[in-house]
């Protein structure tokens, strides 16, 4: 199996406060890893650091993406190299249409891969195809990015963007929060259909519920900035029953 992502001894802080205190994690192609843990454990910090959010400072450790030094890359280069974050709180961008936003993103990635940009026709048919996957309405194209979207629409829109960009590593940060059961099913099915033997996913969640739909190969418990326990999907069930205190 090919190694996709390798995190070793990762320490990171925000505003001088250390949040990650030595995270180690190896993710191979084709794997789904769930990361669970109590509030404040560092789950969202991990996704922010992997995507290069400027507010966080890496103080120690390394992260390699397919043999490349991920931490040395600008956020947009990480994205083009295949790292995708489904945001816990997707950002509204008034005045920038979904079409314009997505076409720019897709073509920037294609340029990075040495490919020609898509023609408007090719692009629109790709939009149409991927929207069906998430049961998103056609009118989406002309709306501003996430502006006025319901909570469920925002999360579907994240997975739609993931479908458009076909990342090697998808990080789903609390994608289940704020979703009703129907939206959860649609989002999870979308994620499952995008799974290939070459890509991988990190699923960050509080609850076992999402993992009924997106079945992980590994479950990690993150507590106080470190992975304190790793198991298979049964660990998630155990946590649901006994809580995090049983581990820490």
């Amino acid at each position: 199996m090919n190694k996709l992502l390798e995190i070793s001894n990762l320490h990171a802080s925000i505003g001088g406060k250390e949040i990650l205190k030595g995270v180690n994690l190896v993710i191979n192609e084709g794997e789904v890893h769930a990361i669970m843990g109590p509030n404040g454990a560092g789950k969202s910090t991990l996704s922010a650091v992997l995507t290069g959010h400027p507010a966080y400072e890496v103080t120690e450790g390394e992260v390699w993406l397919r043999g490349e030094n991920l931490l040395a890359m600008e956020p947009e280069v990480r994205a083009r190299a295949g790292v995708f974050l489904s945001f816990q709180y997707p950002v509204e961008i008034p005045g920038v249409s979904m079409t314009n936003f997505m076409r720019t993103a897709v073509n920037e990635k294609r340029a990075y891969e040495g490919k020609e940009p898509l023609s408007p026709k090719e692009f629109l048919s790709l939009m149409r195809e991927k929207k069906k996957l998430l049961e998103l309405p056609d009118k989406l194209n002309n709306r501003s990015v996430n502006e006025g979207f319901s909570g469920g629409e925002k999360k579907k829109n994240e997975i739609f963007q993931m479908a458009m960009l076909e990342p090697r590593l998808a990080i789903l940060d609390e994608t289940d929060s704020g979703l009703d059961i129907d939206a959860l099913r649609i989002v999870a099915e979308g994620v499952n259909r995008l799974k290939t033997p070459q890509n991988a996913a990190i699923v960050i969640t509080h609850y076992q519920r999402l993992l009924d739909y997106i079945v992980p190969d590994f479950v990690h418990v993150l507590a106080d900035g470190k992975i304190v326990k790793t198991g298979d999907k049964n660990l998630a069930l155990e946590l649901e029953e006994h809580g995090y205190e049983s581990i820490a």
Partner: peptide, 30 residues
């Protein structure tokens, strides 16, 4: 410029300069 929107766009592979331009154009479009 909205820093959160800039980062969101960068996370989708849009270069920082291009992202700034999109936000400025959006501001002027009205």
């Amino acid at each position: 410029l909205d820093e959160a929107a800039l980062f969101y766009m960068q996370q989708r592979g849009i270069g920082k300069q291009k992202a700034r331009q999109l936000l400025v154009n959006a501001f002027m479009q009205e």
